[in-house]
Design a protein around this nucleic acid. Structure first.
Lengths: 274, 274
DNA sequence: TTGCTCCTCACGTCACGTGAGGTGGC
DNA sequence: TTGCTCCTCACGTCACGTGAGGTGGC
């Protein structure tokens, strides 16, 4: 028999504050078994205790309220467990990101700026296969990983010959606003058959100031900062998208410390030499 | 020579959105080197790039903005590093909590309710040493750990004889609202000298429904739920603070899975036997 | 009957993001 | 001159917490 409980009693049994229980009622996460229409008093039952225990644990794991609702509404255990597993995967990902951020901070504080040299070079026009999309800033990294992997696979599947390192071109919106046009490409020769998101494209020529960033992408703003400062100091910047070349990347080694990324910043070049 | 940069340029170099830079200006975390009084345009300099790089990394680690300010304002490296180390310690603590929450969830989903029996017993009046304070709900666990440790040390230092397991008494505000009166105590015989927060006190007699909770404190709401449901179902609850006795706790083993906590819920007892 | 519990707004927190509406600079 | 960059409000987000002011139940 399910006994009736006031909010206060239910709070003591669930270790959730009364304010929280009222909030859960308001957002429809946990409705009291009964609400007195005259007084507005909430009444719960002992049968709701197991439910609130699950809610509490999922919220402790920072699962968003709508997802907790979905877990409670799951038709069967399998569905429920997969929702929970997906959330645990997200937590694992966040943990990895935190670890990377700690490394990045240590790196910044311990080692003074390395002597990464900046040079000017001309990038010629090149045929390529690529993927081009409007991407949300927040999703940029997974998008980038996926697009590069799809590209590599397409190059292999179609037997194309890569003529250089893969690269990316990013409109300023990607950095400054919340979304912008992003492109990843692999320079190739030969005829390309469009497949999935992959299309043939032409990478335009450009005059660039370039720097080679060594190490994880979490630190790439360091090299962007150095390169941007150089361009600003010499007042040689021109409009145009920033580009990157992945000289050593995920395809070569999982050890991000060994990655090498060339960053190109478009410039006006008076000196044809150098 | 520090070149002048617009927000957009500074955004590209720092990989922070323009909105974020404006926000940092508004809250005083990162002021532009210059603001045109007529147009309101913000101008940064290349000298600010290293600063924004530190800010970005600390915010990636979810350090609150006021603390980031403190790091930037730190008078020397030692001070700065200790602020950062303190934050990393907090992150480590959160990680441990997340792990505990995962274990707790798994425990809840895998094992159905154990057969923890509920019995009724009379707790007699007892002399004790204790610490009693109004505690914020959010701070309850560290307060509890610290207070228990201080108590144990006082008992040892004064050569007192513990006559039973240590315990805690919690007013309903601790569970329901955001703060409430909490007490931890060790029952002792002999005369007690007040020291620090520790004072002699008397634990009143009470009729209790009790359950023994086995395992981590993160799971203790399960036992509270079972005990509360029992009291509600039999309609034997009376007003009074909830109490706990730490039969096996931090003092005995660091392995929380082996902890045993008796929870007491005040009841009206018609049957003098049992 | 006292006082404790419960109620409903309305607003605050934190670190930005969204979006409208408008102006300045190359 | 176009259009791109920049500006300022005002409001939204998320999961509650704070606090005022008031009523119901034992």
């Amino acid at each position: 028999m399910a006994a009736t409980l006031t909010v206060g009693e239910f709070s003591r049994m669930s270790h959730l504050s009364v304010k929280t229980l009222r909030h859960y009622h308001q957002v429809g996460l946990l409705e009291p078994a009964e609400v007195n229409p005259h007084t507005g008093y909430r009444y719960y039952t002992t049968a709701q205790i197991p439910v609130v225990q699950v809610i509490r644990r999922l919220r402790d794991l920072e699962m968003p309220v709508p997802e907790v609702k979905a877990v409670l509404a799951a038709p069967d255990t399998g569905h429920r467990n997969s929702l929970i597993a997906a959330h645990l995967d997200r937590l694992t990902g966040q943990l990895a990101q935190t670890r990377a951020a700690v490394d990045s901070l240590r790196n910044l504080l311990e080692s003074p700026d390395g002597p990464a040299p900046i040079v000017h070079r001309t990038a010629g026009r090149a045929g390529a296969v690529g993927i081009r999309q409007i991407v949300d800033r927040a999703d940029i990294e997974p998008w980038w990983r996926g697009a590069l992997a799809e590209l590599q696979a397409t190059v292999q599947a179609q037997g194309l010959q890569a003529t250089g390192a893969s690269g990316g071109v990013f409109a300023s919106g990607v950095y400054e606003d919340e979304q912008g046009e992003a492109t990843v490409f692999v320079p190739v020769t030969g005829s390309v058959r469009p497949a999935g998101r992959v299309t043939p494209m032409s990478i335009p020529a450009a005059e660039l100031a370039v720097i080679i960033h060594q190490g994880a992408l979490a630190d790439i703003d360091l090299s962007y900062g150095r390169l941007g400062a150089h361009v600003a100091t010499h007042a040689i910047g021109v409009d145009g998208p920033l580009c990157e070349y992945y000289l050593v990347g995920a395809n070569d080694t999982p050890d991000q410390a060994r990655w090498r990324t060339e960053i190109g910043w478009p410039i006006f070049r008076a000196d044809a030499t150098n």
